[in-house]
Amino acid sequence: MRFINFIYQNFVKLCFIGFLIATFSSNAETILISNEGSDNITIIDLKSYEVLATINGGKRPRDMHYIPKSNSLLVAASEDDTIYRIDLDTYEITGKLETGDDPEIFDISPDGKIAVVSNEDDNAATVIDINSGKIIRVIEDVGIEPEGVNFSPDGKLVYITSEGTNTVLIIDPWAGKVIEEILVGNRPRRGAFTKNGQEYWVTNELGGTVSVIDTNSYKVIHNIKFEKKGIRSTEITPVDFAMSNDGKLAYITLGRSKHVAVVQTENYKVIDYILAGSRVWGAAISSDDKTLIVTNGNSDDISIIDTDKRASIKSIAVGITPHTVRIID
Protein backbone atom coordinates (compact mmCIF):
# COMPACT_ATOMS: atom_id res chain seq x y z
CA MET A 1 0.00 0.00 0.00
CA ARG A 2 2.80 2.39 0.87
CA PHE A 3 4.46 1.45 -2.39
CA ILE A 4 1.32 2.15 -4.36
CA ASN A 5 0.93 5.44 -2.55
CA PHE A 6 4.50 6.30 -3.41
CA ILE A 7 3.93 5.50 -7.04
CA TYR A 8 0.68 7.44 -7.04
CA GLN A 9 2.21 10.51 -5.40
CA ASN A 10 5.10 10.53 -7.78
CA PHE A 11 3.09 9.76 -10.84
CA VAL A 12 2.13 13.38 -11.35
CA LYS A 13 5.76 14.44 -10.95
CA LEU A 14 6.89 11.76 -13.35
CA CYS A 15 4.38 12.86 -15.89
CA PHE A 16 5.55 16.44 -15.51
CA ILE A 17 9.19 15.45 -15.90
CA GLY A 18 8.25 13.35 -18.88
CA PHE A 19 6.41 16.29 -20.34
CA LEU A 20 9.43 18.51 -19.80
CA ILE A 21 11.70 16.00 -21.48
CA ALA A 22 9.32 15.69 -24.37
CA THR A 23 9.00 19.42 -24.74
CA PHE A 24 12.47 20.72 -24.09
CA SER A 25 15.06 18.03 -24.59
CA SER A 26 14.46 17.50 -28.27
CA ASN A 27 12.15 18.68 -30.96
CA ALA A 28 12.25 15.48 -32.87
CA GLU A 29 9.08 14.71 -34.74
CA THR A 30 7.09 17.83 -34.31
CA ILE A 31 4.75 19.83 -36.49
CA LEU A 32 5.13 23.61 -36.44
CA ILE A 33 2.28 25.86 -37.57
CA SER A 34 2.48 29.66 -37.91
CA ASN A 35 -0.86 31.35 -37.21
CA GLU A 36 -0.90 34.74 -38.89
CA GLY A 37 -4.17 35.85 -37.30
CA SER A 38 -3.25 35.07 -33.69
CA ASP A 39 0.47 35.94 -33.82
CA ASN A 40 1.64 32.59 -32.50
CA ILE A 41 3.13 29.25 -33.46
CA THR A 42 1.51 25.94 -32.56
CA ILE A 43 3.84 23.03 -31.85
CA ILE A 44 2.29 19.58 -32.24
CA ASP A 45 3.72 16.11 -31.65
CA LEU A 46 3.89 14.28 -34.97
CA LYS A 47 3.09 10.89 -33.42
CA SER A 48 0.43 11.60 -30.78
CA TYR A 49 -0.96 14.77 -32.45
CA GLU A 50 -1.02 16.44 -29.03
CA VAL A 51 -0.48 20.17 -29.00
CA LEU A 52 2.79 20.51 -27.06
CA ALA A 53 2.96 24.27 -26.87
CA THR A 54 1.74 27.51 -28.38
CA ILE A 55 4.50 30.09 -28.52
CA ASN A 56 4.91 33.74 -29.48
CA GLY A 57 5.61 34.16 -33.18
CA GLY A 58 5.82 37.95 -33.49
CA LYS A 59 3.19 39.96 -35.36
CA ARG A 60 1.62 38.11 -38.29
CA PRO A 61 3.97 35.12 -38.49
CA ARG A 62 3.98 33.49 -41.90
CA ASP A 63 6.78 31.54 -43.59
CA MET A 64 9.16 29.51 -41.37
CA HIS A 65 12.37 27.57 -41.87
CA TYR A 66 14.09 25.21 -39.47
CA ILE A 67 17.85 25.45 -38.84
CA PRO A 68 18.92 21.99 -37.61
CA LYS A 69 22.44 23.05 -36.55
CA SER A 70 21.16 25.34 -33.81
CA ASN A 71 17.74 23.71 -33.37
CA SER A 72 16.18 27.06 -34.10
CA LEU A 73 13.37 28.35 -36.26
CA LEU A 74 13.38 31.40 -38.49
CA VAL A 75 9.92 33.00 -38.70
CA ALA A 76 8.90 35.86 -40.98
CA ALA A 77 6.80 38.23 -38.85
CA SER A 78 5.24 40.37 -41.58
CA GLU A 79 3.85 43.16 -39.42
CA ASP A 80 7.05 43.43 -37.40
CA ASP A 81 9.04 43.75 -40.65
CA THR A 82 11.53 41.17 -39.45
CA ILE A 83 12.47 37.51 -39.37
CA TYR A 84 12.75 36.23 -35.80
CA ARG A 85 15.07 33.47 -34.70
CA ILE A 86 13.32 31.26 -32.14
CA ASP A 87 15.33 28.82 -30.03
CA LEU A 88 13.34 25.56 -30.09
CA ASP A 89 14.91 24.39 -26.82
CA THR A 90 13.60 27.33 -24.85
CA TYR A 91 10.90 28.70 -27.22
CA GLU A 92 12.42 32.15 -26.74
CA ILE A 93 13.09 34.67 -29.47
CA THR A 94 16.89 34.93 -29.47
CA GLY A 95 17.55 37.15 -32.45
CA LYS A 96 16.24 38.73 -35.60
CA LEU A 97 17.16 39.35 -39.21
CA GLU A 98 16.65 42.63 -41.05
CA THR A 99 14.22 42.05 -43.90
CA GLY A 100 12.82 45.30 -45.23
CA ASP A 101 9.05 45.83 -45.31
CA ASP A 102 6.46 43.10 -44.96
CA PRO A 103 8.42 39.84 -45.37
CA GLU A 104 6.14 36.94 -46.27
CA ILE A 105 7.95 34.05 -47.93
CA PHE A 106 11.69 33.42 -47.69
CA ASP A 107 14.22 30.70 -48.36
CA ILE A 108 17.64 29.83 -47.05
CA SER A 109 20.63 28.99 -49.26
CA PRO A 110 21.63 25.32 -49.09
CA ASP A 111 24.90 26.32 -47.36
CA GLY A 112 22.87 28.16 -44.72
CA LYS A 113 24.68 31.46 -45.26
CA ILE A 114 22.07 33.75 -46.75
CA ALA A 115 18.33 34.13 -46.82
CA VAL A 116 16.26 35.73 -49.57
CA VAL A 117 12.88 37.21 -48.69
CA SER A 118 10.11 38.68 -50.86
CA ASN A 119 8.86 42.16 -49.90
CA GLU A 120 5.33 42.15 -51.26
CA ASP A 121 4.65 45.87 -50.87
CA ASP A 122 7.97 47.09 -52.23
CA ASN A 123 8.17 44.86 -55.32
CA ALA A 124 11.61 43.83 -54.09
CA ALA A 125 13.59 40.88 -52.79
CA THR A 126 16.00 41.29 -49.89
CA VAL A 127 19.18 39.25 -49.47
CA ILE A 128 20.20 38.80 -45.83
CA ASP A 129 23.33 37.45 -44.14
CA ILE A 130 21.95 34.92 -41.67
CA ASN A 131 24.87 35.05 -39.23
CA SER A 132 24.98 38.81 -38.80
CA GLY A 133 21.26 39.34 -39.48
CA LYS A 134 22.15 42.28 -41.74
CA ILE A 135 20.82 43.05 -45.21
CA ILE A 136 23.43 42.41 -47.89
CA ARG A 137 21.45 43.90 -50.75
CA VAL A 138 17.96 44.64 -52.04
CA ILE A 139 17.02 43.50 -55.52
CA GLU A 140 14.36 45.82 -56.89
CA ASP A 141 11.86 45.44 -59.68
CA VAL A 142 11.10 41.76 -59.20
CA GLY A 143 7.53 42.23 -60.44
CA ILE A 144 4.46 43.33 -58.50
CA GLU A 145 3.68 41.54 -55.26
CA PRO A 146 6.55 39.04 -55.28
CA GLU A 147 5.66 36.02 -53.16
CA GLY A 148 7.20 32.54 -53.58
CA VAL A 149 10.97 32.30 -53.05
CA ASN A 150 13.06 29.19 -53.71
CA PHE A 151 16.79 28.61 -53.88
CA SER A 152 17.80 26.33 -56.74
CA PRO A 153 19.18 23.07 -55.33
CA ASP A 154 22.73 24.13 -56.28
CA GLY A 155 22.26 27.34 -54.31
CA LYS A 156 23.29 29.59 -57.18
CA LEU A 157 19.96 31.10 -58.19
CA VAL A 158 16.69 32.13 -56.60
CA TYR A 159 13.30 31.76 -58.28
CA ILE A 160 10.67 34.30 -57.26
CA THR A 161 6.99 34.23 -58.23
CA SER A 162 5.42 37.61 -58.92
CA GLU A 163 1.68 37.55 -58.23
CA GLY A 164 0.87 40.83 -59.93
CA THR A 165 3.03 40.38 -63.02
CA ASN A 166 2.20 36.69 -63.66
CA THR A 167 5.85 35.82 -64.02
CA VAL A 168 8.66 33.91 -62.38
CA LEU A 169 11.85 35.93 -61.99
CA ILE A 170 15.16 34.16 -61.76
CA ILE A 171 17.70 36.17 -59.83
CA ASP A 172 21.32 35.73 -58.85
CA PRO A 173 21.23 36.66 -55.14
CA TRP A 174 25.02 36.61 -54.84
CA ALA A 175 25.48 39.19 -57.60
CA GLY A 176 22.12 40.91 -57.12
CA LYS A 177 20.91 40.58 -60.68
CA VAL A 178 17.75 39.60 -62.51
CA ILE A 179 18.77 36.82 -64.91
CA GLU A 180 15.49 35.87 -66.59
CA GLU A 181 11.74 36.40 -66.47
CA ILE A 182 9.24 33.73 -67.47
CA LEU A 183 5.53 34.24 -68.12
CA VAL A 184 3.35 31.71 -66.27
CA GLY A 185 -0.38 31.60 -65.39
CA ASN A 186 -2.42 34.10 -63.38
CA ARG A 187 -1.37 34.97 -59.84
CA PRO A 188 1.60 32.65 -59.36
CA ARG A 189 1.81 31.99 -55.63
CA ARG A 190 4.49 29.46 -54.72
CA GLY A 191 7.08 27.34 -56.42
CA ALA A 192 8.91 24.09 -55.74
CA PHE A 193 11.80 22.32 -57.39
CA THR A 194 11.41 18.68 -58.26
CA LYS A 195 13.80 16.50 -56.28
CA ASN A 196 16.15 16.12 -59.24
CA GLY A 197 16.27 19.90 -59.71
CA GLN A 198 15.35 19.64 -63.38
CA GLU A 199 11.99 21.34 -63.06
CA TYR A 200 10.48 24.22 -61.14
CA TRP A 201 6.75 23.94 -60.54
CA VAL A 202 4.61 27.04 -59.95
CA THR A 203 1.03 27.25 -58.66
CA ASN A 204 -1.15 29.75 -60.54
CA GLU A 205 -3.81 30.52 -57.96
CA LEU A 206 -6.26 32.28 -60.27
CA GLY A 207 -5.30 30.44 -63.42
CA GLY A 208 -6.12 27.24 -61.55
CA THR A 209 -3.08 25.46 -62.98
CA VAL A 210 0.52 24.52 -62.23
CA SER A 211 3.21 25.67 -64.70
CA VAL A 212 6.21 23.39 -65.05
CA ILE A 213 9.42 25.24 -65.94
CA ASP A 214 12.47 23.46 -67.32
CA THR A 215 15.38 24.77 -65.24
CA ASN A 216 17.82 24.37 -68.13
CA SER A 217 15.90 26.10 -70.91
CA TYR A 218 13.81 28.41 -68.67
CA LYS A 219 10.76 27.46 -70.75
CA VAL A 220 7.32 26.40 -69.54
CA ILE A 221 7.16 22.80 -70.72
CA HIS A 222 3.84 21.75 -69.24
CA ASN A 223 0.65 23.08 -67.66
CA ILE A 224 -1.02 20.83 -65.14
CA LYS A 225 -4.79 21.23 -65.03
CA PHE A 226 -7.10 20.07 -62.27
CA GLU A 227 -10.59 18.75 -62.83
CA LYS A 228 -12.87 16.98 -60.41
CA LYS A 229 -16.53 16.32 -60.77
CA GLY A 230 -18.50 18.48 -58.36
CA ILE A 231 -15.83 21.18 -58.15
CA ARG A 232 -16.17 24.26 -60.31
CA SER A 233 -13.03 25.41 -62.10
CA THR A 234 -13.24 28.77 -60.31
CA GLU A 235 -12.92 26.98 -56.96
CA ILE A 236 -9.61 25.42 -57.94
CA THR A 237 -7.04 27.83 -56.54
CA PRO A 238 -3.67 26.05 -56.15
CA VAL A 239 -1.25 27.53 -53.63
CA ASP A 240 1.37 25.37 -51.93
CA PHE A 241 3.39 22.22 -52.57
CA ALA A 242 4.78 19.27 -50.70
CA MET A 243 7.15 17.21 -52.88
CA SER A 244 7.51 13.62 -51.69
CA ASN A 245 11.06 12.74 -50.65
CA ASP A 246 11.17 9.79 -53.03
CA GLY A 247 10.67 12.27 -55.86
CA LYS A 248 7.61 10.54 -57.25
CA LEU A 249 4.66 12.61 -56.10
CA ALA A 250 3.72 16.23 -55.70
CA TYR A 251 0.94 17.18 -53.28
CA ILE A 252 -0.66 20.48 -54.26
CA THR A 253 -3.15 22.35 -52.06
CA LEU A 254 -6.12 23.65 -54.05
CA GLY A 255 -7.39 26.45 -51.77
CA ARG A 256 -11.11 27.09 -52.08
CA SER A 257 -11.86 23.65 -53.53
CA LYS A 258 -10.92 22.15 -50.11
CA HIS A 259 -8.89 19.45 -51.85
CA VAL A 260 -5.26 18.44 -52.18
CA ALA A 261 -4.22 17.13 -55.60
CA VAL A 262 -1.81 14.20 -55.89
CA VAL A 263 0.32 14.47 -59.04
CA GLN A 264 2.86 12.05 -60.48
CA THR A 265 6.04 13.99 -61.21
CA GLU A 266 7.21 11.79 -64.09
CA ASN A 267 4.12 12.27 -66.29
CA TYR A 268 2.25 15.18 -64.62
CA LYS A 269 -0.80 12.97 -64.19
CA VAL A 270 -3.23 13.95 -61.44
CA ILE A 271 -3.97 10.62 -59.77
CA ASP A 272 -6.14 11.65 -56.86
CA TYR A 273 -7.83 14.45 -54.93
CA ILE A 274 -7.83 14.31 -51.13
CA LEU A 275 -10.49 16.20 -49.17
CA ALA A 276 -9.03 18.59 -46.58
CA GLY A 277 -10.43 21.76 -44.93
CA SER A 278 -11.68 25.18 -45.94
CA ARG A 279 -9.16 27.24 -47.97
CA VAL A 280 -6.40 24.66 -47.76
CA TRP A 281 -3.06 26.44 -48.24
CA GLY A 282 0.19 25.38 -46.54
CA ALA A 283 1.59 21.86 -46.95
CA ALA A 284 4.46 19.76 -45.59
CA ILE A 285 5.35 16.07 -45.72
CA SER A 286 7.15 13.86 -43.21
CA SER A 287 10.59 12.48 -44.18
CA ASP A 288 9.16 8.95 -44.54
CA ASP A 289 6.51 10.31 -46.95
CA LYS A 290 3.76 8.75 -44.80
CA THR A 291 2.16 11.86 -43.34
CA LEU A 292 1.06 14.99 -45.14
CA ILE A 293 0.01 18.01 -43.10
CA VAL A 294 -1.99 20.88 -44.60
CA THR A 295 -3.19 24.15 -43.05
CA ASN A 296 -6.83 25.20 -43.53
CA GLY A 297 -6.88 28.99 -43.46
CA ASN A 298 -10.63 29.44 -43.17
CA SER A 299 -11.32 26.88 -40.45
CA ASP A 300 -8.32 27.56 -38.18
CA ASP A 301 -7.18 23.96 -38.18
CA ILE A 302 -4.83 21.53 -39.89
CA SER A 303 -5.61 18.23 -41.58
CA ILE A 304 -3.41 15.20 -41.03
CA ILE A 305 -3.41 13.14 -44.21
CA ASP A 306 -2.38 9.48 -44.41
CA THR A 307 -0.64 9.29 -47.79
CA ASP A 308 -1.18 5.52 -48.13
CA LYS A 309 -4.93 5.85 -47.62
CA ARG A 310 -4.91 9.22 -49.36
CA ALA A 311 -7.38 10.47 -46.79
CA SER A 312 -7.54 12.96 -43.95
CA ILE A 313 -7.37 11.01 -40.70
CA LYS A 314 -7.58 13.83 -38.19
CA SER A 315 -7.98 17.56 -37.93
CA ILE A 316 -6.43 19.59 -35.13
CA ALA A 317 -7.51 23.09 -34.08
CA VAL A 318 -4.60 25.52 -34.08
CA GLY A 319 -4.44 29.36 -33.94
CA ILE A 320 -6.27 31.86 -36.14
CA THR A 321 -5.56 31.64 -39.90
CA PRO A 322 -2.80 29.01 -39.99
CA HIS A 323 -0.31 29.94 -42.73
CA THR A 324 2.79 27.75 -42.96
CA VAL A 325 3.42 24.21 -41.74
CA ARG A 326 6.85 22.63 -41.21
CA ILE A 327 7.66 19.14 -40.02
CA ILE A 328 10.82 18.41 -38.06
CA ASP A 329 11.57 14.69 -37.93
Binding site: E163, G164, N166, G185, N186, R187, L206, G207, G208, T234
Partner: peptide, 10 residues
Protein backbone atom coordinates in the same frame (compact mmCIF):
# COMPACT_ATOMS: atom_id res chain seq x y z
CA UNK B 1 -8.42 35.84 -71.27
CA UNK B 2 -8.00 36.06 -67.49
CA UNK B 3 -7.69 39.11 -65.32
CA UNK B 4 -6.63 39.29 -61.69
CA UNK B 5 -8.63 42.02 -59.95
CA UNK B 6 -7.48 41.20 -56.39
CA UNK B 7 -11.00 40.35 -55.29
CA UNK B 8 -11.11 36.58 -55.42
CA UNK B 9 -12.06 34.81 -58.63
CA UNK B 10 -10.51 35.30 -62.02
Amino acid sequence: FKLDGSKGPI
